[in-house]
Design a protein around this nucleic acid. Structure first.
Lengths: 332, 332
DNA sequence: CTGAAAGCGCTTACAG
DNA sequence: CTGAAAGCGCTTACAG
């Protein structure tokens, strides 16, 4: 069959346990032995059996990545690849792998998660979404599986990483005020999504802090998260005669709205949105305003937190809620 | 520690091997025993250790999913979630899991794949892209790891599943001809991508079969795959005065082009595109023409083929190239 | 239809 | 700094 640790040991003239320690780069092994054994592993094209390692050491070196129920808007948003890049970056440093947990419905997802958690196939879970009263998250808590949520769940007894959505809603709105906007609308989406509600809250605070009146009629929430939805909203529902500023919570929606404004050659209405990764420079209009959410950092911080949570020293009554800084870009 | 097969066996008054056979639903065990043991597993909340199962049985029950180097256009296209849904559907039937192989560069990806393949963490690989001369694919072939590509690679010694891109390029073009279009352009993208070139080929064949002249000046290739690219193309480069038909290879690009046409209230130019999953009905304009690629079926077929390829009976000199049927929708 | 025993390929105290 | 031995939690011929 495949080459095992015994084969390597025999050829190197050492004990299997020594080879094992070389694999783990155990400091108690002399450099000389390490070099000898490593050479032989190369020569023989030896790779440790991951399942044997996992069984013997009780470490699977794998995290489960829990995706939301498949909706196009989720996958189409640059948030997803950006955060995935951050997760991967951090995990590959630690030589960990990612096991996907998709699932056609909540039941299927739950059974799968039960299996991989109880079956010790994963050491922890990363939730790529935060939703109200999530049964999967509750399950992770019950079985005390280390977990971290990307987003802000309605459950403080869990680790999570997010932007400070209230704050950036505030900053975005204030940036438009500073640019001279008088009548600023908020384009949200589903207020059940916490980040939509939180950014809305910041929007409202900023208005009030600047002595504007908050007008619920300027809050647009009844839309989905795709560019076409933004386009339609701008075309049919936004009162572009009186408005001169838009805080747009969703990046794709913003694309649609901007496409409409561009085509109307409307330069009066200033917009600001939140972008998973955008930077000034190539491909970004000079006067574009946006807030860079640094979503890749959210991904990598989530992984770091999960590693911390793995540490048995950690009291399970201590939870990390971390806010990743976002950068305001106000254009020229 | 955790509950093991021995604990269950003891409580049930049977041997561990019997419990193991119950887990596997081995037909040689009596229904009576199965019921008894299953009840006890439930009671004790027993879950088999996946790594122990994998080590003992030499089956990891996991496939690796190889993603392309992170580009937004890939993730933003509905193709990705659609094919993932199909893959998941089929794999969950077989109780298999998906291990993700991302990676910031080719080197990292290659090392990771070597590790999970040689380390027996995966039984096979699904490539979610087809690129020229792919070193990762070559590696899979060298180590004889069962693999299936979604797309059409430049390598026939591998299993793959795809749409018949030449054929659907032909059908799409012919559909526009039947609608009375006289001057039809092809909007492609990167001709290094095989599906772009193949659909182009079908476009050309259809023109010629219908006694039109093929004009290379009507082939637009210099664009990326996002809606904004389509919008810009329509606005700046397409000669909408003389054109009356557009075969658009990429669904997102088509969105951008259509947005522009709508806004210009241009009803002369008819378009047709290829969509990962779209059906007639809700949210689809009555007169929209498109070809439904059935990408979810591609995903599920890919998984089926991989299971076939696992079968040791299979000669490794036999490769399946399967084309999934796409449906032409020509609108009312 | 069921059980006892060997084995999958590692890791890890323990001893030296 | 290194080795011998036990053990991780399963599966699977083999025997009955």
């Amino acid at each position: 069959m495949a080459i095992t640790i015994r084969d390597v040991a025999k050829r190197a003239g050492v004990a299997p346990s020594t080879v094992s320690r070389v694999i783990a780069d155990n400091p108690s092994i002399s450099e000389q032995t390490k070099i000898k054994v490593r050479n032989i592993m190369k020569e023989m094209n030896y790779f440790p059996n991951i399942y044997a390692q996992g069984l013997a050491s009780a470490h699977s070196k794998t995290f489960g990545l829990v995706l939301p129920l498949a909706t196009d808007a989720f996958y189409q948003n640059p948030f997803f690849p950006t955060v995935l890049r951050g997760i991967n970056y951090e995990m590959s440093k630690h030589d960990y792998s990612i096991l996907l947990s998709v699932g056609l419905d909540n039941d299927q997802r739950q059974r799968h998660i039960e299996k991989i958690v109880n079956g010790k196939q994963v050491e922890g879970l990363i939730f790529l979404y935060a939703s109200k009263n999530d049964p999967l998250l509750r399950f992770a808590q019950e079985v005390q599986c280390p977990a971290v949520v990307i987003g802000s769940p309605d459950n403080s007894k869990v680790h999570y990483v997010d932007n400070d959505n209230d704050l950036i809603g505030y900053q975005a709105t204030e940036a438009l005020i500073k640019k001279g906007c008088e009548r600023i609308a908020y384009v949200g989406g589903d207020m059940n999504q916490f980040f939509i509600a939180d950014r809305h809250n910041g929007y409202r605070r900023a208005l009030e802090a600047n002595n504007r009146i908050y007008d619920p009629g300027l809050v647009y929430n009844d839309l989905a998260f795709l560019p076409t939805d933004g386009y339609e909203l701008a075309q049919k529902h936004l009162d572009l005669k009186t408005l001169d500023g838009l805080v747009i919570s969703d990046e794709l929606v913003a694309q649609g709205i901007k496409a409409y404004l561009d085509e109307q050659e409307n330069e009066k209405v200033k917009t600001i949105t939140f972008s998973a990764y955008k930077q000034d420079g190539i491909g970004v209009a000079e006067d574009a305003s946006f807030i860079n959410l640094n979503s890749h950092i959210i991904g990598s911080r989530a992984v770091d937190i999960l590693f911390e949570a793995l540490d048995p020293e950690q009291a399970s009554t201590r939870f990390i809620h971390e806010y990743v800084a976002a950068d305001l870009h106000t254009g020229k």
